[in-house]
Amino acid sequence: MARWTPGARDRLQAAAFDVIRARGFDAVTVAEIAEAAGVTERTFFRHFADKREVLFDGQSTFVTAVAEAVAAAPARHDAVAAVRHGFDAAAEMFPDERRPRSRARGAIIAADEGLSEREAQKMRSLAVSIAAALDGRGVPEPEASLVARAAVGVFEVAFAAWIAEGETRGLREIQTSLFDRLGALLAG
Rank of each mutant, 00 (worst) to 15 (best):
R118M: 09
V63P: 03
A89L: 08
F87K: 03
V30S: 10
E167S: 04
R137W: 03
L115W: 03
D78H: 01
A133H: 02
G7E: 07
G153N: 01
Q59Y: 12
E92W: 12
D135T: 14
V157H: 12
A91Y: 02
A82G: 10
E35G: 12
I33E: 01
D18C: 07
L182C: 11
F62H: 10
E167F: 05
D10T: 13
A71V: 08
M93G: 08
A8E: 00
E97D: 14
V63G: 09
I163L: 09
P95S: 02
A127L: 04
F56C: 04
E35P: 05
S145D: 14
I163C: 04
A31W: 08
D135W: 14
I108H: 08
A37I: 06
P100K: 05
T40H: 08
G106Y: 05
A49S: 15
A2G: 14
T168P: 11
V83N: 05
L171I: 00
M93D: 10
T168N: 12
V54Y: 09
A161K: 11
R118K: 13
A144I: 00
R46M: 15
F48C: 06
A133F: 02
A2E: 15
A31I: 12
L182S: 13
I163D: 01
I108V: 09
V70W: 02
V154Y: 03
V147L: 05
G183M: 03
V152R: 01
R99V: 09
G7Y: 06
G7V: 06
L55D: 03
E165Y: 11
R137A: 00
F155T: 03
W162L: 00
V30E: 07
I33P: 04
F94R: 01
S177E: 15
E68L: 04
D26T: 13
L171W: 02
D10H: 11
K122A: 14
A36I: 06
A131C: 06
A161L: 15
R101I: 13
I163W: 03
V157F: 15
T64H: 12
D10V: 12
A27C: 13
V28C: 10
G166W: 04
A184H: 09
G24W: 11
G106A: 10
A91V: 04
D26M: 10
A72D: 12
R11Y: 09
I130W: 04
R84F: 10
R169P: 09
G106L: 02
V28G: 11
R105Y: 11
D88F: 10
S177C: 14
A107T: 13
A82C: 07
A72E: 09
A158N: 07
A69C: 15
A36K: 07
V66M: 01
A158Q: 01
F87Q: 05
A132V: 15
P142R: 02
G114E: 04
A22R: 14
E173A: 10
R98F: 12
R103F: 14
V63E: 08
A89R: 07
A111P: 10
E143S: 14
F17H: 14
F44R: 00
D50Y: 08
F25Q: 00
Q121L: 15
A158S: 13
G24Q: 15
F87R: 00
A8Y: 00
A81R: 07
V70M: 00
A132E: 15
G38T: 02
